[in-house]
Amino acid sequence: MAAFLLRRLIQGGLVVLGVTFTVFVVTRIFGNPVDLMLPLSASPEQRAAFASELGLDRPLPVQFVQFAGELLRFDFGESTWQRRPAMEVVLERLPNSLLLIGAGLGLAIVLSLPAGILAAQRPGGILDRIVTGLSLVGLSMPQFWVGLLLIVLFAVTIPLLPTSGMGSPAHLVLPAVTLALVPFARLTLLVRSQMMEELNKPYIRTALARGLPHRRVLVGHALRNALIPFLTLAGWELVLALAGYTVVVETVFAWPGMGLVAIQALQRGDLFLVQAIVYVVAVLIVLVNILLDLVFKLVDPRIGLG
């Protein structure tokens, strides 16, 4: 157990190091932080002063060590846009994003299980065709477009739900539905195909031959086995959502989460804030992945700890 955690933490550390390196290469070699962060009107003297303040006039390897060191000390610098520590901004917005992700993914998970199971009952039947067809359509629609169509529908045609910002639970509905659509479609297709696969396995035949009721075999045996790939994909959807796939939804619905703030920071050249967001997200992904592995070990006795 300890060895497993240690190994996963080291791997997670490598991920964060990789992200650090990528961000460093991108910002220092392909771009110039000074140009990015100072207005065009800044004088050459101002630029030089800013560069030396940030240590940008030193050799690159030295800069990288300094850069990585600051991150290790959780020193993410000050947001040039908001004039306060970048991490403060991130921590303020993070819960909003997590709320959105939780609601969206929760919706997708809760709906995809019954939809997929029902479709798998009669492969090729009418219900199956409807579920599969709708899932494929859901997978094919760009998120921002779905969001905008919902806004048109709810703001113009039936003004029932707020279409932007955050405040009441009602504000959460449209962003969460938009975010849920793609994971819902993918999870439903997976539940369907996994259930079909499991239902054709010998142990299901034996369970039926033992005289167990159909419903029990379906839920207690087939679904239980199908849940393992389902959890894998649901975990992957969570990682994807964390990895920035909420950016689009948050932008469309002006949801004040990390994605929206990331876009705003990029538009304002607020490098430190963007960096802080990227790091927090990278660490979150690493933690979620470790957590998922632990969950799998709980669910599947065939996976040993080690």
């Binding site: 396995k201 010998p202 142990y203 035949r205 039926l208 239980r224 086995n225 065939r302």
Partner: peptide, 28 residues
Amino acid sequence: GKEIACIFQDPMQSLNPLMTIGAQLVET
């Protein structure tokens, strides 16, 4: 499943991999 029981060719594949032997026997 009650008056007629059966055993199959591949015992490795014929039991639910996620449940203990006991749980499957007890269930039956």
